[in-house]
Design a protein around this nucleic acid. Structure first.
Lengths: 161, 161
DNA sequence: TATGGATAGTTGAAAATGTCAACGATTTAT
DNA sequence: ATAAATCGTTGACATTTTCAACTATCCATA
């Protein structure tokens, strides 16, 4: 991580090595911006005792889509056992509840409790501010464009706008 | 990771949960595309006994910019101790060499050997193909745009085009 | 309708990564 | 000259990832 946002000012001064060809590499760019963003996100969410991971699970639990743990694992690109740990903790805190799947009794759906929904509301404010900080170098239109392109790369056209 | 690219065909079928609001979250989008890309990158680089990390170090060592280990750590968002391990391994394989810094004798610059350069050439072909696979949902122009926006978010305007 | 093969969640262990504090050697500032 | 800071390195510790097993349930089909 090793990123100096101590004073809260500069996100990153242009580095000598930016000139190297790796700055054209998609994987590197994604890793780097994700690293910057994770620090800010986790810092913003710490106030609510959440991290990026648990925040994601809470959002999906609160989506009304009643995801099963397997669906969470697939969607978040995590191992099913990691979902167990995340849901365990959120459930212990009374933020989400497990329910047996309606069609499939093996599966367990995860839904947010009222308490979880309230916490999420406050937390997502903080997350929004963190995201804005990551994107402070981009005007609003380009931020939207960046996110649209990421969605399209992941899932193809059809959902963006 | 849990991503089904076994047959080599579909990168990811549109998931039920795409409808959730987290699909608008920058951190999530970066994490997810990075996860997909890492799998493909590491698979492509495995043939050369490299991973994303060592590949990045090798590129920078081969850039002609003679980075010090500290500069590598800052640029790659890694702890200095991780750079030690990465350079140790590459040096042991004869792909890079450490040299004392010219101005600062505490520092050590890392440069690629001829052997490292040759390996890098072959590896970067494979990496390019992996990147193309990640971006197969985007036409060339949008791929370039995505990368330009990522660079701008990281370092501001000035280098892109 | 019973049997075999797949799948959901869970557990636990092993491997890989991340984080951090300390240290010697040097540099920089005073 | 001395003090404070920095670079690479080491080693300890925490967190995360990965994987194989296990039970319960579902599904296909003989």
């Amino acid at each position: 991580m090793t990123i100096e946002t101590q004073g809260g000012q500069r996100t990153e001064q242009a580095h000598k090595l930016v000139a190297a060809s790796i700055s054209q590499d998609l994987g590197f760019l994604l890793a780097k911006l994700h690293a910057v963003g994770s620090v800010l996100n986790n810092r913003a969410l710490a106030e609510f005792d959440l991290k990026e991971r648990s925040y994601s699970v809470l959002i999906l639990a609160n989506s009304g889509l009643e995801p099963t743990q397997r669906e969470l694992a697939d969607f978040l690109s995590l191992d099913p056992s990691q979902i167990v740990a995340l849901v365990d903790e959120l459930e212990k805190r009374g933020l989400v509840a497990r329910a047996p799947g309606k069609q499939d009794r093996r599966a367990k759906t995860v839904t947010a409790t009222a308490k979880g929904g309230k916490l999420l509301q406050r937390a997502s404010d903080a997350a929004r501010r963190a995201e804005a900080e990551v994107l402070e170098g981009l005007p609003a239109e380009e931020s939207a464009q960046l996110k649209a392109l990421l969605r399209k790369a992941l899932w193809g056209a059809g959902l963006s706008t």
